[in-house]
């Protein structure tokens, strides 16, 4: 564990990963997009709108995955005092919010032809909406302090509290939406044939690899920002 806690060691590993993740992301989009947009069959019920799924579902998946990364690295930061973990969380948060936003927008655009309205209080979509607001709060808390270290600690605690809360919120919303079910049609009716599952999996892989690449770039920036702060301090001390 502590072997990877050394920032230099860590960035070396990250730099080794970067070309691979970038290659996987590019390959997945090059193969996945034509499959999703052209070669996969239209759904027998939903017709061509089913193609929205190939960006909606990966975005939904990523919004949850990134939250898990943030919660995990927050735990590593608070419990084992890992020296890079809080930077991973910091670098990930805007990406998680972006994925949640993409999921919400594509979900609304899918909802209009499917439900006849841009927004129904579908359990999954509503959960992602709340997750989006948790991201917003998390990012706001990170930057709310003059001392970035204080922001890191506060945000890490929030992330852990949220990791208990996110499943509770999800089940509450699920229960709530079945309670008020009237006109709501869920996406469960969608049966995935192999011709649909394949592009979906490739797009999920592409989104994941894309996240890994971008988070490494952001991590570099965060590590440099920390170095700059240190250098400024020693420069000020020398004067």
């Amino acid at each position: 564990m502590h072997k990877y806690a050394n920032p230099t060691q860590f960035i070396r590993i990250a730099n080794a990963v970067l070309p691979w993740s970038t290659a996987i992301a590019v390959a997945a989009f090059v193969i996945g997009l034509p499959l999703a947009l052209v070669f996969s069959p239209p759904d027998y019920q939903q017709g061509e709108t089913v193609r929205i799924m190939y960006v909606h579902v990966p975005a939904a998946w990523m919004s949850l995955m990134v939250y898990m990364v943030i919660a995990g690295s927050s735990a590593a930061f608070l419990i084992w005092r890992h020296t890079v973990a809080h930077l991973i969380a910091r670098a990930s948060a805007p990406l998680g919010a972006m994925f949640a936003a993409v999921c919400l927008i594509s979900g609304m655009l899918w909802g209009q032809p499917m439900w006849g309205t841009f927004w129904v209080w579908d359990a999954r979509l509503t959960s992602v909406l709340i997750l989006f607001f948790i991201y917003i709060g998390y990012i706001a808390l990170l930057d709310a302090f003059d001392d970035p270290e204080r922001g890191d600690r506060a945000a890490a605690i929030l992330a852990l509290v949220g990791s208990v809360n996110v499943p509770i919120i999800h089940f509450s919303v699920e229960w709530w939406s079945t309670l008020h079910q009237g006109t709501i049609i869920t996406m469960d009716g969608l049966t995935l044939s192999g011709d649909m599952a394949r592009p979906l999996l490739i797009m999920v892989a592409g989104f994941t690899a894309f996240y890994v690449s971008v988070v490494i770039i952001r991590l570099r920036a965060e590590l440099l920002a920390a170095k700059i702060r240190n250098a400024r301090q020693s420069l000020a001390a020398a004067e």
């Binding site: 947009l37 061509e48 709108t49 193609r51 929205i52 960006v55 909606h56 993409v102 927008i105 594509s106 655009l109 899918w110 209009q112 032809p113």
Partner: peptide, 8 residues
Amino acid sequence: FVWSSYAA
């Protein structure tokens, strides 16, 4: 709907 999803 389809193209604006991909655009987003």
